[in-house]
């Protein structure tokens, strides 16, 4: 753990047992497998990968919302230093206040039977952070204004709002208890492009104003490139490459990162057919390929890739990758 780390993940695993019956032993799904990373304080840390790569599970395990099977998560913030897997009841309550999650779908995340004011106020009431209704209202109005919500809308119900406005309500709800660490799980994926840019700019400005550390989970590399300071690329439960954002997008070293970047449809109609095509699909995490997990789809794989697990190495300063061929 370095001095600047806000959240430090050390060889964290989340394994789920499947198909266990009275007579059989069943298999194990390694959703997250021995992942280590340091999330610097005040950073916008991106986590990218295809569906099934384990990025959501990793985000949830950090928030103590998925069962940790091995390794640990350390959370250091001012005077607290938590081992997230082993929190006492009182500490867990405090941890819940310090960390929050913003979901993908603003249509599903908000209760249709509550007014916007009640939706935003609920965390305060549940955690008992305010004493009087007036104090709650004050906090709600303050955060709603920060999230650029129209204060007159607080009395309305969510159905009256568009996707972008709803996502601003979700963000206000997540921020109302003044968390210091936020996991944004695909928080702009369901939004239209014209709105997406607005929400991204809002998240960036909130991060600066309120001094929050973000773990930004996304499948969209262009979005991550534009918002994040650091990026980790996940594949089948492990991190294959990690670097400061600009470095990663300008000189990707892992073949998977290169393939992901090249698969993004270019806006230039003359680039047709130039995409480097990745064969096949992500294997099932219940039947993990031996050696390098990516070798079944890797365009440069050789014999040893199917037997030897590649080492996680620092190639240049703060640029890590796990590939036999990335020098």
């Amino acid at each position: 753990m370095t001095e600047r780390s806000h959240v430090s993940v050390d060889r964290l695993s989340v394994h789920y047992g499947i198909g266990k019956s009275l007579f059989g032993r069943g298999g194990v799904v390694k959703a997250v497998d021995e992942v280590s990373l340091e999330i610097p304080r005040g950073s916008f840390f991106g986590l990218v990968g295809e569906s099934g790569s384990g990025k959501t599970t990793l985000g949830r395990a950090i928030l103590n919302a998925a069962p940790i099977s091995g390794g640990g998560v350390r959370y250091v913030d001012g005077d607290v230093d938590y081992d997230v897997g082993n929190l006492s009841k009182a500490d867990l309550k405090d941890y819940r206040k310090r960390t929050q999650l913003i979901f993908q779908d603003p249509y599903a995340a908000l209760s249709p039977r509550m007014t916007v004011r009640d939706i935003i106020a609920e965390p305060l009431e549940v955690m008992g952070l305010t004493k009087t209704r007036a104090e709650t209202d004050e906090r709600v109005r303050e955060i709603a204004a920060k999230c650029r919500l129209n204060l007159e809308h607080l009395r309305r119900f969510p159905h009256a709002f568009s996707g972008g406005q709803r996502q601003r309500i979700s963000i206000a709800r997540a921020l109302v208890c003044e968390p210091k660490f936020l996991v944004a799980d695909e928080s702009v994926a369901a939004l239209d492009v014209s709105i997406q840019a607005d929400i991204l700019n809002l998240l960036k400005s909130l991060q600066k104003d309120l001094d929050i550390t973000f773990l930004f989970i996304s499948h969209d590399l262009s979005v991550v490139a534009h918002t994040c300071d650091y990026v980790a690329v996940m594949y089948l439960g492990t991190i294959v490459e990690m670097a400061p954002s600009r470095e990663l997008f300008e000189s990707p070293r892992h073949p998977y990162t290169k393939a992901l970047l090249s698969a993004i449809p270019s806006l230039d109609p003359d680039d047709r057919g130039k995409a480097q095509k990745l064969e096949g699909e992500i294997p099932s995490p219940a039947a993990m390929p031996p050696g390098c997990r990516f070798h079944t789809r890797c365009p440069v794989a050789e014999g040893r890739c199917s037997t030897d697990v590649p080492e996680w190495r620092e190639l240049t300063r703060s640029h890590f990758a796990a590939c036999h061929f990335s020098e």
């Binding site: 492009v193 014209s194 700019n201 262009s222 490139a225 600009r246 993004i264 806006l267």
Partner: peptide, 26 residues
Amino acid sequence: QGLLNALPKLEKLDVALTPVPGDIPS
């Protein structure tokens, strides 16, 4: 033009994203 400006582009990481102002009317 607004749609194209709002789109995050990998070639232009220094250019800030410009959203199309406002929301889609009901």
